[in-house]
């Protein structure tokens, strides 16, 4: 094995890590905001809002992300009106288009996850909170959101991992993140297997860390499912006996 080559490849690929993380983080943050809007629209009960939100989710979940990215990056440039407008400063940048496509895409999936979480809150809990005289805001802050977030977290963790994987598509519209750099090294050296395996290892490491963080978060948010301190102690003693 050619360790010098491997370590050189890994070092060069790691140069793309900040860009990969940047795209993932920004699009998850922006997409999360969109998703809250979409979920609230669906829960609002106002017919046109519900309809728009449903159509959005249907279209973005029913088409490939790459098509969405191409529509934004190449498609919009077809119109002279857009090229002449202020929006063009952003829409001509591959980075902006990649983040926008990823954010709009994850928004559709996240909205569904959020909606599932909100619907999982038992109605009795909401009734009980109302009976205690909680205002709408307090009710959401103290009862609905904590339960909904806890319920939605595992599915959201999966979505986050899917997003990290999806950032690789940004390389197709010329962004030099990890996959883009891997493709460049491959075209210079023709050692596809070594290069793409190294890139895969980096993604795997990111997603492994990410899944640990989500697991820790889940653990922290579900104290009621953990054993009581004296039970944990007993379990420990029991192991030793």
């Amino acid at each position: 094995m050619d360790f010098a080559f491997y370590s050189e490849v890994i070092w060069r690929l790691l140069g793309g890590l900040p860009m990969t993380l940047n795209i993932a983080f920004v699009s998850v943050a922006v997409g999360g905001l969109f998703a809250v809007g979409l979920a609230l629209m669906q829960e609002s009960g106002v017919a046109p809002l519900v309809w728009i939100s449903r159509a959005y989710v249907f279209v973005f979940r029913g088409t490939p992300l790459l098509v969405q990215m191409f529509l934004i990056f190449y498609g919009l440039s077809q119109f002279p009106e857009i090229r002449a407008s202020w929006a063009w400063t952003y829409l001509r940048q591959p980075y902006f288009c990649a983040v926008l496509a990823l954010a709009m895409n994850t928004a559709a999936y996240t909205a569904e996850i959020l909606r599932g979480g909100l619907q999982s809150v038992p109605f009795g809990q909401i009734e009980a909170a109302r009976a205690c005289g909680m205002s709408r805001v307090t009710l959401y802050r103290r009862v609905v959101l904590p339960i909904a977030v806890r319920q939605a977290l595992p599915a959201y963790g999966t979505e986050l991992i899917l997003m990290v994987r999806a950032t690789a598509l940004a390389s197709i519209i010329t962004i030099m993140e990890i996959t883009g750099i891997a493709q460049k090294i491959n075209s210079e050296t023709f050692r596809a297997i070594e290069v793409f395996v190294c890139a895969g290892v980096i993604y795997l490491a990111i997603n492994f860390l990410l899944s640990r963080v989500v697991m820790a978060l889940e653990h922290w948010l579900t104290p009621h499912l953990r054993a009581m301190p004296h039970e944990q102690l007993l379990a420990k003693v029991g192991d030793k006996l």
Partner: peptide, 21 residues
């Protein structure tokens, strides 16, 4: 774990370019 944690695009590149390599 590996195939759900690695970008699908990378798997396509690996098989396509790696296969011809």
């Amino acid at each position: 774990t590996v195939l759900r944690g690695v970008p699908d695009l990378l798997v396509i590149y690996l098989l396509y370019f790696g296969g011809s390599q």
